[in-house]
């Protein structure tokens, strides 16, 4: 049962609100110890799939096997020890110190009050992300990039085996996007399984190992011989004519402008 190669095995997963289907019969495997990127247009069901996998939405149709365990049978606390989920953007209300924000990641391990080792884990996570210097700063006074780093430290303090991130770069500037993705890339070698939703296929191809395409709530499979960065694949996913420029063994993708240049 406890297959080492597959972190998440999803079989026949469907989800919808009322009559409106969001995901239809999704079956896919997420390899362990790899950085897997979920790609697709807005509304393709990427975030919904991630939230279902993270246990934030109830699974009604389909089966998810999590590191060899049937997810249905796991309690919320047990799930939280396997999966760490980082929501899109954290809106803080109170100016908690960075270390206290990270410490809340330990909630799945804590009964009522965190102990000394929980604080140590939080500080280790800050160090791993490389933001120990922010430890005592109020979260609300940090830049968007720093805030995302803190939230990643919070997920790491949770000590999960799988980390899921929902569009972690969407509110960041050019440089902070690159920094964050580099950090996420490093996590995979620690070893962690990382599943991330990204908008930008170029960052995905630069940093990712494995790619899953979603279109209208269905998995879009590659035909044999196709690579994820092939022009025809991307044109199929994004319904837009593309240019691809070779970049190493992969490619940079640019949508054609309406004039067709």
């Amino acid at each position: 049962m406890g297959s080492v190669e597959t972190a998440l095995d999803i079989q026949g997963l469907s989800f919808g609100y009322g009559d409106r289907p969001i995901l239809t019969d999704v079956s896919v495997q997420i390899p362990a110890g790899k950085l897997t990127v979920l790609l697709g247009r807005n509304g393709s069901g990427k975030s919904t799939l991630l939230r279902l996998l993270a246990g934030l939405l109830p699974v009604k149709h389909g089966r998810i096997t999590l590191m060899g365990h049937d997810m249905h049978r796991l309690s919320a606390a047990e799930k939280a020890r396997i999966i760490g989920f980082m929501p899109q953007q954290h809106r803080a209300v109170f100016p908690f110190a960075v270390e206290d924000v990270v410490l809340t990641g330990r909630a799945g391990h804590v009964r009522l009050l965190p102990r000394r080792e929980d604080m140590e884990k939080a500080l280790q996570a800050l160090e791993q992300v490389g933001i120990s210097h922010l430890q005592g700063r109020p979260f609300t006074e940090l830049s968007g990039g720093e805030q995302q780093m803190v939230m990643i430290a919070r997920v790491l303090a949770q000590e999960p085996q799988i980390v899921m991130l929902d569009e972690p770069t969407s509110h960041l500037d050019f440089i902070n996007q690159a920094r964050l993705l580099t950090l996420i890339r490093q996590l995979v070698s620690t070893p962690l399984t990382v599943l991330v939703v990204l908008h930008d296929p170029n960052s995905a191809f630069l940093y990712g190992d494995h790619f899953i395409f979603l279109k209208n709530g269905r998995i879009e499979l590659l035909e044999s011989g196709e690579s994820p960065w092939d022009r025809c694949v991307l044109e199929r996913i994004y319904d837009t004519p593309m240019h691809t420029l070779p970049y190493g063994d992969r490619a940079i993708v640019v949508p054609q402008d309406p004039a067709g240049r």
Binding site: G55, L56, A80
Partner: peptide, 17 residues
């Protein structure tokens, strides 16, 4: 201390179990 966790928000609370 649970209030600290709750003050993070619903998704953030659910994500930590």
């Amino acid at each position: 201390w649970r209030m600290n966790v709750l003050a993070m928000g619903d998704d953030e609370t659910r994500a930590v179990g």
